[in-house]
Design a protein around this nucleic acid. Structure first.
Lengths: 234, 234
DNA sequence: GAATTGTAGATTGTCGACAATTTACTTGAC
DNA sequence: GTCAAGTAAATTGTCGACAATCTACAATTC
């Protein structure tokens, strides 16, 4: 057993398959730019580098394929998918569709538990903005807010789709995080959503999330365009 | 550009990995009820039965996991996920969110090519309703209409999500197909959507798709409830 | 010299085998 | 009789090896 019974405050250890760990490492390498877009993702090389067999690498790659980070060609292997401006646009269009539906459901399902969780997360967003310098932590906190909303929608399928695009989303939020001079700005942009939800005002909540995501979309794409120009001019 | 060289009208052959074929077989077995919901999906048994190694079965199972048909527990293997009334409800809520966004985009992107494809597909729906007795063929045609809409939205991510839930959707449409006495009814329910799109009337198109999906949702769930009651009383 | 064909090297696709883990059963104590 | 611990069978997780396929380059022809 994995420590179910009486339980003396032990933490769940590892208990995460090799596949998941490899997948996490790979996605981090891709998002951070260590693996160039379009680059071939050789199974043998990755396997050798990580000191594991090719089987878990293959499965991890297929996992990443379903989340859109890599694409596979039969008998040719896996390639790092390149994020284009269009891809980012498409990503935000999907998020808009999903999260609009999520907040609509949230207004219906609203309860103290959800309110507490989201309120705490906004507080956490403020905390990491002031106390933590690390951008990655801040991005994680941002993601967590949206993840909590999906969880609270009581529709696992919404959460599933969110997790599917989570890595790319994280990547895009990273771009925003680097843009804002003042990190507290990130925290503030989430407050109108929470307020509208608290008031259980569906119309207001929908327009709040639409505004939130559209703004993020604009910023991410502007920032990405800058990044691209810098790259081509080198 | 699926036709590059001089080309002498040959058709693309198979070119589909063993993994994909196994996945298709498994999903068909699940939705057809051959594999009971909640049942363990033993790698070795499936592998032996299909005459292949366990590796492709594993990968196929992981593929099905991302499409929600099976769930995996570490060190315990894969299990057939059971479709509950709530799961069907959730599925249709997701479809509603996605396809609403899709028709909104379709109105913007509308062009002759899309119009032709969708018109032809409605005609095909009528054809299979009258000429083909096979329910499966009819369901395939229904799916194809929605798939074409997603493709036409020019956002690959919408199509991706659609394909993710495609198998479950197919399963649910199968229930509808069995309900309608008159198969042409299926074809007819798609016409208002196409008409609204032709008129490039976003508001009308959205309400048409909402009506279409909501009706399907109602029917599927009623039908499923009937099926469940029949099962428990046995 | 350009285009096609042939060949060698590398890479993926699939397999069977072994180690780690879980499950079902038996045994023993209370 | 019930519960716990121990043990054996079955199953998954991982591995290294071989076959099928692709890629790049050399050889050949026009």
């Amino acid at each position: 057993m994995t420590q179910t019974q009486p339980s003396s405050g032990f933490q769940q250890i590892d208990r995460e398959g090799l596949v998941q760990r490899v997948a996490k490492l790979l996605s981090k390498a891709i998002v951070s730019g260590k693996l160039a877009p379009g680059a071939r993702l050789s199974e043998s090389v990755v396997a050798r580098e990580l000191g594991v067999s090719r089987a878990p690498v293959r499965e991890a790659a297929r996992l990443l394929e379903s989340s859109g980070l890599v694409r596979s060609e039969p008998n040719r292997g896996f390639f790092v998918r390149q994020v284009s401006i269009k891809a980012l646009n498409d990503l935000y269009e999907l998020r808009l569709a999903i999260e609009t539906a999520v907040v609509e459901r949230l207004v219906q399902n609203w309860n103290d538990e959800i309110e507490e969780a989201l309120t705490a997360q906004v507080a956490e967003l403020h905390r990491v903005a002031t106390e933590e310098a690390d951008i990655f932590t801040q991005v994680e906190a941002d993601m967590q807010f949206h993840r909590l909303m999906c969880t609270g929608s009581d529709n696992p399928k919404f959460l599933q789709v969110f997790e599917q695009v989570a890595i790319e989303t994280e990547f895009s939020i990273m771009l925003i995080g680097q843009l804002y001079d003042d990190p507290t700005r990130i925290a503030e942009t989430h407050e109108p959503i929470l307020e509208a939800l608290r008031a259980r005002d569906a119309t207001k909540a929908v327009s709040a999330i639409r505004y939130h995501i559209s703004e993020a979309q604009r910023i991410v794409i502007d920032q990405f365009r800058l990044l691209e120009e810098g790259k081509t001019s080198t």
